[in-house]
Nucleic acid binder design. Structure first.
Length: 493
RNA sequence: GGCCCCAUCGUCUAGCGGCCUAGGACGCUGGCCUCUCAAGCCGGAAACGGGGAUUCGAAUUCCCCUGGGGCCA
Protein backbone atom coordinates (compact mmCIF):
# COMPACT_ATOMS: atom_id res chain seq x y z
CA UNK A 1 0.00 0.00 0.00
CA UNK A 2 1.23 3.45 -0.84
CA UNK A 3 1.23 5.61 2.24
CA UNK A 4 -0.60 8.88 1.68
CA UNK A 5 -1.14 11.21 4.59
CA UNK A 6 -2.34 14.75 4.74
CA UNK A 7 -2.37 17.97 6.67
CA UNK A 8 -5.65 19.75 6.12
CA UNK A 9 -5.65 23.11 7.86
CA UNK A 10 -8.44 25.64 7.70
CA UNK A 11 -7.28 29.08 6.71
CA UNK A 12 -9.08 30.49 9.72
CA UNK A 13 -5.91 31.14 11.64
CA UNK A 14 -2.20 30.45 11.77
CA UNK A 15 -0.80 26.99 12.33
CA UNK A 16 -0.04 26.53 15.97
CA UNK A 17 2.50 24.38 17.63
CA UNK A 18 0.11 21.67 18.78
CA UNK A 19 -1.13 21.01 15.27
CA UNK A 20 2.38 21.20 13.94
CA UNK A 21 3.52 18.44 16.29
CA UNK A 22 0.93 16.22 14.63
CA UNK A 23 2.06 17.46 11.24
CA UNK A 24 5.62 16.49 12.14
CA UNK A 25 4.43 12.97 12.94
CA UNK A 26 2.60 12.75 9.61
CA UNK A 27 5.53 14.11 7.70
CA UNK A 28 8.06 11.79 9.35
CA UNK A 29 5.80 8.86 8.63
CA UNK A 30 5.31 9.82 4.98
CA UNK A 31 9.01 10.34 4.41
CA UNK A 32 9.97 7.13 6.11
CA UNK A 33 7.44 5.10 4.13
CA UNK A 34 8.38 6.85 0.89
CA UNK A 35 4.77 7.93 0.72
CA UNK A 36 3.12 11.21 -0.13
CA UNK A 37 2.37 14.13 2.12
CA UNK A 38 -0.62 16.12 0.92
CA UNK A 39 -1.48 19.67 1.91
CA UNK A 40 -5.19 20.28 1.53
CA UNK A 41 -7.01 23.45 2.42
CA UNK A 42 -10.35 23.17 4.19
CA UNK A 43 -11.95 26.51 3.56
CA UNK A 44 -15.64 25.70 3.47
CA UNK A 45 -16.25 27.86 6.50
CA UNK A 46 -16.17 30.98 4.38
CA UNK A 47 -17.21 33.30 7.16
CA UNK A 48 -14.10 32.72 9.24
CA UNK A 49 -11.37 32.99 6.64
CA UNK A 50 -8.31 34.94 7.68
CA UNK A 51 -6.76 37.05 4.99
CA UNK A 52 -3.16 35.90 4.71
CA UNK A 53 -3.61 32.54 6.41
CA UNK A 54 -2.70 30.57 3.30
CA UNK A 55 0.56 32.40 2.93
CA UNK A 56 1.38 31.94 6.61
CA UNK A 57 0.61 28.22 6.43
CA UNK A 58 2.97 27.83 3.49
CA UNK A 59 5.64 29.99 5.10
CA UNK A 60 5.45 28.15 8.39
CA UNK A 61 5.84 24.74 6.82
CA UNK A 62 8.63 25.89 4.55
CA UNK A 63 10.48 27.49 7.41
CA UNK A 64 10.18 24.26 9.39
CA UNK A 65 11.52 22.33 6.44
CA UNK A 66 8.37 20.27 6.15
CA UNK A 67 7.80 19.81 2.45
CA UNK A 68 4.68 18.47 0.82
CA UNK A 69 4.24 16.51 -2.38
CA UNK A 70 0.76 17.52 -3.43
CA UNK A 71 -1.66 20.28 -2.70
CA UNK A 72 -1.39 23.97 -2.04
CA UNK A 73 0.87 25.53 -4.64
CA UNK A 74 2.03 22.14 -5.82
CA UNK A 75 -0.88 20.60 -7.69
CA UNK A 76 -1.11 16.84 -8.07
CA UNK A 77 -3.28 14.14 -9.56
CA UNK A 78 -6.08 14.40 -7.02
CA UNK A 79 -6.90 18.09 -7.19
CA UNK A 80 -8.26 20.54 -6.71
CA UNK A 81 -6.82 20.59 -3.18
CA UNK A 82 -8.83 23.54 -1.99
CA UNK A 83 -12.26 22.57 -0.76
CA UNK A 84 -14.02 25.67 -1.97
CA UNK A 85 -13.11 24.55 -5.48
CA UNK A 86 -14.67 21.14 -4.94
CA UNK A 87 -18.23 22.14 -4.10
CA UNK A 88 -19.68 20.40 -7.15
CA UNK A 89 -18.06 17.15 -6.09
CA UNK A 90 -19.64 17.32 -2.64
CA UNK A 91 -23.04 18.13 -4.08
CA UNK A 92 -22.88 15.27 -6.56
CA UNK A 93 -21.76 12.83 -3.91
CA UNK A 94 -24.50 13.95 -1.53
CA UNK A 95 -27.05 13.40 -4.28
CA UNK A 96 -25.64 9.92 -4.80
CA UNK A 97 -26.34 9.11 -1.18
CA UNK A 98 -29.91 10.36 -1.55
CA UNK A 99 -30.36 8.22 -4.63
CA UNK A 100 -29.01 5.23 -2.74
CA UNK A 101 -31.42 5.86 0.09
CA UNK A 102 -28.57 6.40 2.54
CA UNK A 103 -29.39 10.07 2.96
CA UNK A 104 -32.54 12.12 2.72
CA UNK A 105 -33.71 15.64 2.09
CA UNK A 106 -34.99 17.61 5.03
CA UNK A 107 -36.83 20.90 4.82
CA UNK A 108 -37.57 21.37 8.47
CA UNK A 109 -37.50 25.03 9.39
CA UNK A 110 -35.04 26.51 11.76
CA UNK A 111 -37.90 27.30 14.11
CA UNK A 112 -39.01 23.67 14.20
CA UNK A 113 -35.46 22.51 14.77
CA UNK A 114 -35.06 24.97 17.60
CA UNK A 115 -38.31 23.80 19.16
CA UNK A 116 -37.31 20.12 19.17
CA UNK A 117 -33.90 20.97 20.46
CA UNK A 118 -35.27 22.98 23.35
CA UNK A 119 -37.78 20.28 24.16
CA UNK A 120 -35.13 17.56 24.26
CA UNK A 121 -32.85 19.68 26.30
CA UNK A 122 -35.67 20.31 28.74
CA UNK A 123 -36.00 16.55 29.11
CA UNK A 124 -32.31 16.36 29.83
CA UNK A 125 -31.51 14.59 26.58
CA UNK A 126 -28.86 15.36 24.04
CA UNK A 127 -30.53 17.43 21.33
CA UNK A 128 -30.92 15.46 18.14
CA UNK A 129 -32.97 15.69 15.00
CA UNK A 130 -36.23 13.82 15.47
CA UNK A 131 -36.30 12.31 12.00
CA UNK A 132 -39.49 13.91 10.75
CA UNK A 133 -38.28 14.00 7.14
CA UNK A 134 -36.51 10.69 7.41
CA UNK A 135 -39.61 8.64 6.70
CA UNK A 136 -41.28 10.93 4.19
CA UNK A 137 -41.82 9.31 0.82
CA UNK A 138 -39.29 9.98 -1.87
CA UNK A 139 -39.87 13.32 -3.53
CA UNK A 140 -41.82 14.73 -0.61
CA UNK A 141 -39.14 17.37 -0.33
CA UNK A 142 -38.50 18.78 -3.79
CA UNK A 143 -34.96 19.13 -5.05
CA UNK A 144 -35.47 22.78 -5.86
CA UNK A 145 -36.91 23.92 -2.58
CA UNK A 146 -34.57 25.01 0.22
CA UNK A 147 -33.45 21.95 2.15
CA UNK A 148 -30.50 20.14 3.66
CA UNK A 149 -29.37 16.60 3.07
CA UNK A 150 -29.09 14.41 6.15
CA UNK A 151 -27.41 11.08 6.67
CA UNK A 152 -29.75 8.18 7.45
CA UNK A 153 -28.03 6.86 10.55
CA UNK A 154 -28.99 3.36 11.69
CA UNK A 155 -31.21 3.60 14.79
CA UNK A 156 -29.73 0.57 16.47
CA UNK A 157 -26.45 -1.20 16.82
CA UNK A 158 -22.97 0.17 17.29
CA UNK A 159 -20.51 1.91 15.09
CA UNK A 160 -16.97 0.72 15.61
CA UNK A 161 -13.70 1.88 14.21
CA UNK A 162 -10.18 0.73 14.74
CA UNK A 163 -7.48 2.97 16.04
CA UNK A 164 -3.95 1.75 15.54
CA UNK A 165 -2.88 2.86 19.01
CA UNK A 166 -6.02 2.16 21.03
CA UNK A 167 -7.72 -0.73 19.31
CA UNK A 168 -11.44 -0.76 18.63
CA UNK A 169 -13.55 2.14 19.78
CA UNK A 170 -17.33 1.80 19.67
CA UNK A 171 -20.25 4.14 20.05
CA UNK A 172 -23.94 3.38 20.13
CA UNK A 173 -25.73 4.52 17.01
CA UNK A 174 -28.65 5.70 19.10
CA UNK A 175 -26.35 8.46 20.30
CA UNK A 176 -25.55 9.61 16.79
CA UNK A 177 -27.61 12.25 15.08
CA UNK A 178 -28.88 12.20 11.51
CA UNK A 179 -26.15 14.67 10.74
CA UNK A 180 -26.48 17.23 8.01
CA UNK A 181 -24.19 16.45 5.07
CA UNK A 182 -25.06 19.25 2.72
CA UNK A 183 -26.27 22.59 3.94
CA UNK A 184 -29.10 24.53 2.31
CA UNK A 185 -26.61 26.87 0.67
CA UNK A 186 -25.04 23.94 -1.14
CA UNK A 187 -21.92 23.88 1.04
CA UNK A 188 -20.89 20.57 2.52
CA UNK A 189 -20.58 20.13 6.24
CA UNK A 190 -17.13 19.52 7.55
CA UNK A 191 -17.37 15.75 7.90
CA UNK A 192 -18.85 15.16 4.46
CA UNK A 193 -16.13 17.15 2.76
CA UNK A 194 -13.35 15.47 4.70
CA UNK A 195 -14.62 11.96 4.03
CA UNK A 196 -15.03 12.61 0.33
CA UNK A 197 -11.66 14.28 0.03
CA UNK A 198 -9.78 11.66 2.00
CA UNK A 199 -11.38 8.95 -0.10
CA UNK A 200 -10.93 10.61 -3.46
CA UNK A 201 -7.39 11.64 -2.62
CA UNK A 202 -6.60 8.06 -1.64
CA UNK A 203 -5.46 9.02 1.84
CA UNK A 204 -4.24 5.83 3.48
CA UNK A 205 -3.62 6.96 7.05
CA UNK A 206 -5.37 9.67 8.98
CA UNK A 207 -3.10 10.68 11.82
CA UNK A 208 -4.63 13.48 13.90
CA UNK A 209 -5.22 14.74 17.39
CA UNK A 210 -7.24 12.51 19.67
CA UNK A 211 -9.74 15.31 20.17
CA UNK A 212 -11.20 13.93 16.94
CA UNK A 213 -11.97 10.53 18.39
CA UNK A 214 -15.56 11.38 19.37
CA UNK A 215 -16.43 12.50 15.85
CA UNK A 216 -14.85 9.56 14.10
CA UNK A 217 -17.97 7.36 14.27
CA UNK A 218 -19.90 10.05 12.39
CA UNK A 219 -17.30 9.79 9.72
CA UNK A 220 -17.31 6.02 9.65
CA UNK A 221 -21.04 6.12 9.05
CA UNK A 222 -20.48 8.26 5.97
CA UNK A 223 -17.87 5.84 4.67
CA UNK A 224 -20.32 3.01 5.22
CA UNK A 225 -23.09 4.87 3.44
CA UNK A 226 -20.87 5.27 0.41
CA UNK A 227 -19.64 1.72 0.68
CA UNK A 228 -16.07 2.97 0.96
CA UNK A 229 -13.18 1.54 2.92
CA UNK A 230 -12.17 4.01 5.65
CA UNK A 231 -8.50 4.94 6.01
CA UNK A 232 -6.38 3.71 8.88
CA UNK A 233 -6.90 5.93 11.90
CA UNK A 234 -4.13 6.91 14.27
CA UNK A 235 -5.17 9.29 16.98
CA UNK A 236 -2.22 10.93 18.63
CA UNK A 237 -2.33 12.56 22.05
CA UNK A 238 -2.85 16.28 22.34
CA UNK A 239 -0.26 18.85 23.21
CA UNK A 240 -1.17 20.66 26.41
CA UNK A 241 -0.23 24.04 27.81
CA UNK A 242 1.45 24.47 31.18
CA UNK A 243 -2.02 24.50 32.76
CA UNK A 244 -2.76 21.03 31.46
CA UNK A 245 -5.34 22.26 28.98
CA UNK A 246 -5.32 21.71 25.24
CA UNK A 247 -2.83 24.11 23.71
CA UNK A 248 -4.53 27.10 22.17
CA UNK A 249 -4.69 30.83 21.81
CA UNK A 250 -4.89 31.40 25.53
CA UNK A 251 -1.42 29.97 25.97
CA UNK A 252 0.34 32.93 24.41
CA UNK A 253 2.92 32.37 21.72
CA UNK A 254 1.85 29.23 19.95
CA UNK A 255 1.96 30.21 16.28
CA UNK A 256 4.90 28.78 14.39
CA UNK A 257 5.82 32.23 13.19
CA UNK A 258 6.21 33.42 16.76
CA UNK A 259 8.80 30.75 17.40
CA UNK A 260 10.75 31.94 14.41
CA UNK A 261 10.66 35.52 15.63
CA UNK A 262 11.62 34.42 19.12
CA UNK A 263 14.81 32.98 17.70
CA UNK A 264 14.19 29.25 17.66
CA UNK A 265 15.80 27.16 14.95
CA UNK A 266 13.55 25.03 12.77
CA UNK A 267 15.72 21.96 13.25
CA UNK A 268 15.58 22.32 17.01
CA UNK A 269 11.84 22.86 16.97
CA UNK A 270 11.22 19.81 14.79
CA UNK A 271 13.51 17.75 17.00
CA UNK A 272 11.67 18.93 20.09
CA UNK A 273 8.23 18.38 18.60
CA UNK A 274 9.10 14.90 17.41
CA UNK A 275 10.00 14.00 20.98
CA UNK A 276 6.76 15.41 22.34
CA UNK A 277 4.64 12.30 22.60
CA UNK A 278 7.05 10.05 20.79
CA UNK A 279 10.35 8.46 21.67
CA UNK A 280 12.59 6.00 19.87
CA UNK A 281 12.10 3.58 22.75
CA UNK A 282 14.22 0.51 23.36
CA UNK A 283 16.12 2.29 26.10
CA UNK A 284 17.60 4.70 23.59
CA UNK A 285 18.92 7.75 25.39
CA UNK A 286 19.67 10.04 22.50
CA UNK A 287 17.98 13.44 22.64
CA UNK A 288 19.33 15.20 19.58
CA UNK A 289 18.31 13.77 16.26
CA UNK A 290 18.92 14.97 12.74
CA UNK A 291 15.93 14.94 10.43
CA UNK A 292 17.33 11.89 8.70
CA UNK A 293 17.58 10.07 12.01
CA UNK A 294 14.04 11.03 12.92
CA UNK A 295 12.73 9.85 9.57
CA UNK A 296 14.59 6.59 9.87
CA UNK A 297 13.55 5.91 13.44
CA UNK A 298 10.03 7.27 13.71
CA UNK A 299 7.69 4.52 14.71
CA UNK A 300 3.96 4.84 15.26
CA UNK A 301 3.93 2.12 17.88
CA UNK A 302 6.14 4.23 20.13
CA UNK A 303 3.75 7.13 20.26
CA UNK A 304 2.80 7.73 23.87
CA UNK A 305 -0.92 7.68 24.61
CA UNK A 306 -0.90 10.28 27.34
CA UNK A 307 -1.10 13.94 26.41
CA UNK A 308 2.15 15.91 26.56
CA UNK A 309 2.69 19.26 28.20
CA UNK A 310 4.61 21.71 26.06
CA UNK A 311 7.45 23.13 28.11
CA UNK A 312 9.90 25.75 27.01
CA UNK A 313 12.70 24.59 29.30
CA UNK A 314 13.68 21.64 27.21
CA UNK A 315 13.08 23.47 23.93
CA UNK A 316 15.40 26.24 25.09
CA UNK A 317 18.07 23.75 26.02
CA UNK A 318 17.73 21.93 22.73
CA UNK A 319 17.83 25.18 20.79
CA UNK A 320 21.01 26.10 22.64
CA UNK A 321 22.52 22.78 21.67
CA UNK A 322 21.75 23.41 18.03
CA UNK A 323 23.17 26.92 18.23
CA UNK A 324 26.39 25.59 19.72
CA UNK A 325 26.67 23.01 17.00
CA UNK A 326 26.52 25.59 14.22
CA UNK A 327 29.56 26.89 12.43
CA UNK A 328 30.41 30.50 13.20
CA UNK A 329 29.55 31.60 9.67
CA UNK A 330 26.20 29.89 9.83
CA UNK A 331 25.42 31.44 13.19
CA UNK A 332 26.47 34.87 11.95
CA UNK A 333 23.98 34.61 9.08
CA UNK A 334 21.23 33.62 11.46
CA UNK A 335 22.04 36.35 13.95
CA UNK A 336 22.12 39.28 11.56
CA UNK A 337 18.34 39.56 11.12
CA UNK A 338 17.91 39.72 14.87
CA UNK A 339 20.44 42.51 15.26
CA UNK A 340 18.67 44.29 12.43
CA UNK A 341 15.18 43.84 13.83
CA UNK A 342 16.34 45.30 17.11
CA UNK A 343 17.71 48.30 15.25
CA UNK A 344 21.26 47.62 16.41
CA UNK A 345 22.70 47.38 12.90
CA UNK A 346 21.55 48.62 9.52
CA UNK A 347 19.43 46.62 7.14
CA UNK A 348 21.85 46.07 4.38
CA UNK A 349 24.74 45.23 6.65
CA UNK A 350 27.43 47.90 6.44
CA UNK A 351 30.70 46.22 5.52
CA UNK A 352 32.62 48.10 8.23
CA UNK A 353 30.59 46.41 10.94
CA UNK A 354 31.15 42.85 9.68
CA UNK A 355 34.49 42.31 11.47
CA UNK A 356 32.84 43.36 14.72
CA UNK A 357 30.00 40.92 14.15
CA UNK A 358 32.45 38.14 13.39
CA UNK A 359 34.29 38.93 16.59
CA UNK A 360 31.06 38.72 18.57
CA UNK A 361 29.80 35.40 17.26
CA UNK A 362 32.16 33.06 19.14
CA UNK A 363 31.71 35.21 22.22
CA UNK A 364 27.96 34.70 22.30
CA UNK A 365 27.63 31.25 20.78
CA UNK A 366 27.62 29.29 24.00
CA UNK A 367 25.54 31.90 25.78
CA UNK A 368 22.52 31.83 23.50
CA UNK A 369 19.40 29.84 24.10
CA UNK A 370 17.59 31.63 21.31
CA UNK A 371 18.97 33.70 18.47
CA UNK A 372 17.11 36.68 19.83
CA UNK A 373 19.15 36.51 23.04
CA UNK A 374 21.99 38.06 21.08
CA UNK A 375 20.25 41.43 21.26
CA UNK A 376 20.33 41.80 25.03
CA UNK A 377 23.75 40.22 25.16
CA UNK A 378 25.48 42.58 22.75
CA UNK A 379 23.47 45.78 22.63
CA UNK A 380 26.20 47.69 24.46
CA UNK A 381 28.47 47.20 21.46
CA UNK A 382 26.12 49.06 19.13
CA UNK A 383 24.49 51.69 21.28
CA UNK A 384 25.46 54.06 24.03
CA UNK A 385 25.13 52.75 27.55
CA UNK A 386 23.38 54.21 30.53
CA UNK A 387 25.95 55.90 32.78
CA UNK A 388 26.74 53.29 35.46
CA UNK A 389 26.03 54.00 39.11
CA UNK A 390 28.76 54.68 41.61
CA UNK A 391 28.04 51.33 43.20
CA UNK A 392 28.51 49.51 39.93
CA UNK A 393 31.79 51.31 39.37
CA UNK A 394 33.15 50.49 42.78
CA UNK A 395 35.10 47.28 42.72
CA UNK A 396 34.12 44.48 45.03
CA UNK A 397 35.75 45.17 48.39
CA UNK A 398 37.32 48.36 47.10
CA UNK A 399 36.85 51.98 48.02
CA UNK A 400 35.64 54.58 45.58
CA UNK A 401 39.09 56.12 45.49
CA UNK A 402 40.77 52.81 44.69
CA UNK A 403 38.26 52.19 41.97
CA UNK A 404 38.90 55.61 40.51
CA UNK A 405 42.61 54.95 40.49
CA UNK A 406 42.01 51.65 38.72
CA UNK A 407 39.86 53.26 36.04
CA UNK A 408 42.50 55.88 35.41
CA UNK A 409 45.21 53.24 35.20
CA UNK A 410 43.17 51.21 32.72
CA UNK A 411 42.67 54.28 30.54
CA UNK A 412 46.38 54.82 30.44
CA UNK A 413 46.96 51.16 29.66
CA UNK A 414 44.43 51.13 26.81
CA UNK A 415 45.85 54.32 25.36
CA UNK A 416 49.26 52.77 25.19
CA UNK A 417 48.31 49.47 23.58
CA UNK A 418 49.87 49.01 20.17
CA UNK A 419 47.21 46.56 19.17
CA UNK A 420 43.72 47.06 20.57
CA UNK A 421 42.78 43.41 20.69
CA UNK A 422 41.54 40.97 23.30
CA UNK A 423 44.76 39.02 23.14
CA UNK A 424 46.87 42.09 23.63
CA UNK A 425 45.04 43.38 26.70
CA UNK A 426 44.61 40.40 28.96
CA UNK A 427 48.22 40.07 30.12
CA UNK A 428 48.78 43.75 30.92
CA UNK A 429 45.42 43.92 32.66
CA UNK A 430 46.36 41.07 34.95
CA UNK A 431 49.69 42.69 35.64
CA UNK A 432 47.90 45.93 36.43
CA UNK A 433 45.71 44.19 38.97
CA UNK A 434 48.78 42.84 40.72
CA UNK A 435 50.32 46.28 40.67
CA UNK A 436 47.20 47.77 42.25
CA UNK A 437 47.14 45.00 44.84
CA UNK A 438 43.69 43.82 43.81
CA UNK A 439 42.48 40.61 42.30
CA UNK A 440 42.05 40.33 38.57
CA UNK A 441 38.37 39.60 39.11
CA UNK A 442 37.92 42.84 41.04
CA UNK A 443 39.50 44.86 38.29
CA UNK A 444 37.68 43.09 35.48
CA UNK A 445 34.35 43.46 37.22
CA UNK A 446 34.64 47.15 37.60
CA UNK A 447 35.87 47.66 34.07
CA UNK A 448 33.02 45.49 32.82
CA UNK A 449 30.53 47.79 34.48
CA UNK A 450 32.26 50.85 33.14
CA UNK A 451 32.42 49.78 29.50
CA UNK A 452 29.39 47.53 29.05
CA UNK A 453 27.07 49.06 31.62
CA UNK A 454 26.28 45.55 32.78
CA UNK A 455 27.37 43.31 35.59
CA UNK A 456 27.07 40.34 33.26
CA UNK A 457 28.51 40.36 29.78
CA UNK A 458 30.28 38.20 27.22
CA UNK A 459 34.01 37.74 27.89
CA UNK A 460 35.39 41.14 28.81
CA UNK A 461 38.31 41.59 26.46
CA UNK A 462 36.49 40.41 23.38
CA UNK A 463 33.68 42.76 24.31
CA UNK A 464 36.11 45.65 24.70
CA UNK A 465 37.70 44.92 21.35
CA UNK A 466 34.23 44.91 19.78
CA UNK A 467 33.41 48.27 21.33
CA UNK A 468 36.64 49.70 19.97
CA UNK A 469 39.37 51.78 21.53
CA UNK A 470 37.81 55.18 21.08
CA UNK A 471 34.44 54.37 22.58
CA UNK A 472 35.98 52.27 25.34
CA UNK A 473 38.12 55.18 26.42
CA UNK A 474 35.12 57.48 26.32
CA UNK A 475 33.15 55.15 28.58
CA UNK A 476 36.08 54.90 30.98
CA UNK A 477 36.28 58.66 31.02
CA UNK A 478 32.60 58.86 31.84
CA UNK A 479 33.16 56.38 34.65
CA UNK A 480 36.06 58.46 35.92
CA UNK A 481 33.84 61.56 36.04
CA UNK A 482 31.07 59.77 37.84
CA UNK A 483 33.46 58.61 40.54
CA UNK A 484 35.15 62.00 40.79
CA UNK A 485 31.85 63.79 41.15
CA UNK A 486 30.83 61.38 43.86
CA UNK A 487 34.02 62.02 45.77
CA UNK A 488 33.65 65.79 45.43
CA UNK A 489 30.00 65.68 46.46
CA UNK A 490 30.39 63.44 49.46
CA UNK A 491 33.97 63.87 50.43
CA UNK A 492 34.18 60.10 50.76
CA UNK A 493 37.15 58.41 49.24
C1' G B 1 -24.39 16.79 32.48
C1' G B 2 -23.85 12.68 28.47
C1' C B 3 -20.19 10.00 25.66
C1' C B 4 -15.03 9.00 24.79
C1' C B 5 -9.73 8.93 25.84
C1' C B 6 -5.69 8.83 29.23
C1' A B 7 -2.63 7.85 34.04
C1' U B 8 5.88 6.38 35.73
C1' C B 9 10.14 12.01 38.94
C1' G B 10 7.78 19.33 38.43
C1' U B 11 8.15 18.45 32.70
C1' C B 12 9.39 15.08 28.21
C1' U B 13 10.01 9.98 28.58
C1' A B 14 12.43 4.37 28.93
C1' G B 15 9.91 0.20 30.77
C1' C B 16 5.73 -4.13 26.98
C1' G B 17 5.67 -10.37 34.20
C1' G B 18 11.36 -11.58 36.97
C1' C B 19 17.42 -7.77 34.12
C1' C B 20 13.62 -2.20 38.58
C1' U B 21 16.92 -1.04 45.54
C1' A B 22 12.47 2.03 38.24
C1' G B 23 16.93 4.22 33.58
C1' G B 24 17.77 8.87 30.55
C1' A B 25 16.84 14.15 29.33
C1' C B 26 15.17 19.20 30.73
C1' G B 27 14.57 21.95 34.99
C1' C B 28 16.14 22.32 40.23
C1' U B 29 20.37 21.67 43.43
C1' G B 30 25.82 20.82 45.53
C1' G B 31 30.85 20.99 43.60
C1' C B 32 34.85 21.63 39.93
C1' C B 33 36.48 25.01 36.09
C1' U B 34 36.41 30.29 35.69
C1' C B 35 37.13 37.80 34.55
C1' U B 36 30.92 37.99 35.21
C1' C B 37 27.37 35.02 32.82
C1' A B 38 27.22 30.87 30.14
C1' A B 39 29.22 26.34 28.27
C1' G B 40 31.59 21.88 29.97
C1' C B 41 32.59 18.04 33.69
C1' C B 42 31.36 15.37 38.41
C1' G B 43 27.58 14.50 42.31
C1' G B 44 22.39 15.01 44.62
C1' A B 45 17.09 15.38 45.56
C1' A B 46 12.86 13.90 42.75
C1' A B 47 7.92 9.23 40.12
C1' C B 48 5.17 3.78 39.24
C1' G B 49 -2.48 7.98 41.94
C1' G B 50 -5.45 4.40 45.46
C1' G B 51 -7.78 -0.39 46.30
C1' G B 52 -8.77 -5.22 44.91
C1' A B 53 -7.76 -9.61 41.58
C1' U B 54 -4.52 -13.02 38.55
C1' U B 55 0.54 -14.99 39.37
C1' C B 56 5.79 -18.32 42.65
C1' G B 57 6.58 -13.13 41.09
C1' A B 58 3.38 -6.90 38.68
C1' A B 59 5.27 -0.25 37.06
C1' U B 60 4.07 -3.98 33.42
C1' U B 61 -2.40 -8.22 32.89
C1' C B 62 -7.81 -7.63 34.62
C1' C B 63 -11.69 -4.95 37.60
C1' C B 64 -13.29 -0.80 40.63
C1' C B 65 -12.35 4.03 42.53
C1' U B 66 -9.92 8.59 42.04
C1' G B 67 -7.72 12.15 39.08
C1' G B 68 -6.73 14.65 34.41
C1' G B 69 -8.08 15.65 29.46
C1' G B 70 -11.21 15.75 25.08
C1' C B 71 -15.82 16.01 22.31
C1' C B 72 -20.93 17.28 22.37
C1' A B 73 -24.48 20.24 24.86
Amino acid sequence: MTVRVRFAPSPTGYPHIGNIRTVVFNWLFARQQHGKFVLRIEDTDQGRLVRDALRVIEDSLQWLGIDWDEGLGKGGDYGPYIQSQRLQIYQDKAEELVAMGRAYRCNCSQERLDTIRDAMRAEGKTPMYDGLCRDKPEGAVAKDEPHVIRLRVPREGMTTFHDVLRGDISVENALLDDQVLLKSDGFPTYHLAVVIDDHLMAISHVMRGDDWIPSTPKRILIYQAFGWQPPIFIHVPLVLGADGKKLGKRHGATAVDEFRRAGYLPDALVNFLALLGWSPGDGDQQEIFTREELIARFDISHINLAPAVFSYDKLDWLNGQYIRNMSEDELLDQLIPFWQDAGLIEAPVATEIVPTLRLLVPLVQERLKTLRDVVALTDFVFQEIEPPSVDALTGKGMTVGESLAAIVAVQRLFCGLVQFSADAMEEPMRALATELHIKAGQLFGLVRNAVTGKTVSPPLFGSIQAIGRERTLKRLETAEHILLQHIEATGNV
